[in-house]
Amino acid sequence: MKKDFDFSEIGKRTPFRTPEGFFERMQAETLKRAAEEKRPKKLFRLKWGISAALAAAAMICGFLFYPSPTTTTTEQVASTEWLAQSTDAVDHYVQGLSDEELEDWIDFSENDIFYELTTENLNNDEN
């Protein structure tokens, strides 16, 4: 039986092999995937942004339409009217934006939790 093993007998050789042309193919695939990586990410962010904006709108609706134990006051009616107007204004504003502008706007409104979807904000954004 051998008493010692000399690492230099084997050095850095391994029995592992790769298919022919593997590295060239791999490089091309990796670069292709990296190029594709950018596009879905943008769409994903856009979807997230839209979801966040819709969630915010739903919250406002929930808050304003929550049934009150007391009778409806003139003030509440005025609020719902304001919502109708302001939602129209938001829709109108959003429709007028390009994809990139929409993405920027959503990014901004997502990052600022105190940002409100009001016509006042929209007017400021437009200026």
């Binding site: 007998e9 084997i10 050789r13 391994t14 029995p15 592992f16 092999r17």
Partner: peptide
């Protein structure tokens, strides 16, 4: 993709 000819490497 493993070369079994070289037993020592395996």
């Amino acid at each position: 993709y493993v070369d079994y000819d070289n037993e020592m490497e395996v």
